[in-house]
Design a protein around this nucleic acid. Sequence first.
DNA 1: AAACATAGTATAAAACTGTATACTACAGGG
DNA 2: CCCTGTAGTATACAGTTTTATACTATGTTT
Lengths: 125, 125
Amino acid sequence: MRNQKIGFNYPPTKVGCPVETTLDVIGGKWKGIILYHLIDGKKRFNEFRKLYPAITQRMLTLQLRELEKDGIVHREIYKEIPPKVEYSLTEFGRSLEPIILLMKEWGETHKNRIISARTVEKEEI
Amino acid sequence: MRNQKIGFNYPPTKVGCPVETTLDVIGGKWKGIILYHLIDGKKRFNEFRKLYPAITQRMLTLQLRELEKDGIVHREIYKEIPPKVEYSLTEFGRSLEPIILLMKEWGETHKNRIISARTVEKEEI
DNA sequence: AAACATAGTATAAAACTGTATACTACAGGG
DNA sequence: CCCTGTAGTATACAGTTTTATACTATGTTT
């Protein structure tokens, strides 16, 4: 283990780079999708499932709960049967809007480039 | 498995939400940190390790290679002994600057709020 | 001759994430 | 009385990521 020593002690935790803080909040597997759709207004649980059927119920629940815990998303429960729950952005969540919109634009503009950069598996044999 | 059927067929792959495309590029565990520091100019391999000693060599290599494959980062090898390799943003990588800077601002502004939102383990018994 | 520096690679294990499947509650409709 | 719909929860397993540790190359310095 010669190489690992680098002349100073490791900090106990990752001292936050601010960019990492933001990515921690919005970087979950389905959070981009969730936030992107919440910008247009509130959504019900199964609306998300219809928009992205590949999300399992468990993952959707987990991601929404994390966003809720971070104060980004508000969860409104209607005491009805069958159940009705609406998700929406909080005021705080709205502060992410410019970032989400920039990411949306960037993704739209460069999506094809990224896809082709990643599908070059073998150029030559 | 009553609940999983939802009245339409699952698509074969996740049809890209543009926000997800962007998060796929910048959302890796250490990519925020890497990109944030590359905005100031080129960096050598061990400079990153000194900035964030918790990154292992392997992770740093993997993250840099992914950014390189996506065309975000340029890797310049100097044929010297001991080795010297410099990493920098490509022209394409520069197009991420506005997003990185917004994320940096958001993180700086709301870091404490996020930390405390996440450390409320039990309010009452 | 041994040690140092840089930029990695190799391998295995541990930790975390995500999936699959089954299950719950309750009111209304047939 | 059984089925439907909504919004979940529970459990176990599979898959992916991340970590830990050791190792490589090679020219220069001690």
